[in-house]
Amino acid sequence: MNIFLIFISGMFGGLLRYSISDYIIFSSFPLITLLINLSGAFFLPFWTDYLGAKIGFSEKYTKILGTGFIGSFTTFSGMILDSYKLLQVHQTNLFFIYLFLNVVCGLVLAILGDNLANHLNERKQL
């Protein structure tokens, strides 16, 4: 049962990413993958630690949607492949900018998502 749910939610996460990147294409800079990944990095801890429970999902279903949908919406391999493509066309500056944005913004947004969830949880208890 869990596996089936993961399959379905993962499928929708991937299809959402696929349809977004199908319609919006930036030729020189892989902006869409970056934005998708960064939004997922922020939203996963926020969803797991706050929003999932607030909507009324049990921990199990919060996890299934977090792991399946958000986990598949974001992609590590796609980001690495984007970076590799930049290297191949000798866009070394863009390559480093792209990696830097992923490294720094990914971590910062994940921390912010967690912080915001904790903040809202504390307010609720007051």
């Binding site: 958000i70 992609t75 990914g106 971590l107 967690d114």
Partner: peptide
């Protein structure tokens, strides 16, 4: 599709946030 579902950027950063 498979590698997009297999790999994840969000969990990777959530794990790093936990380290933080």
């Amino acid at each position: 599709g498979f590698i997009g579902g297999l790999t994840t950027f969000s969990t990777f950063n959530a794990e790093n946030a936990n380290f933080y």
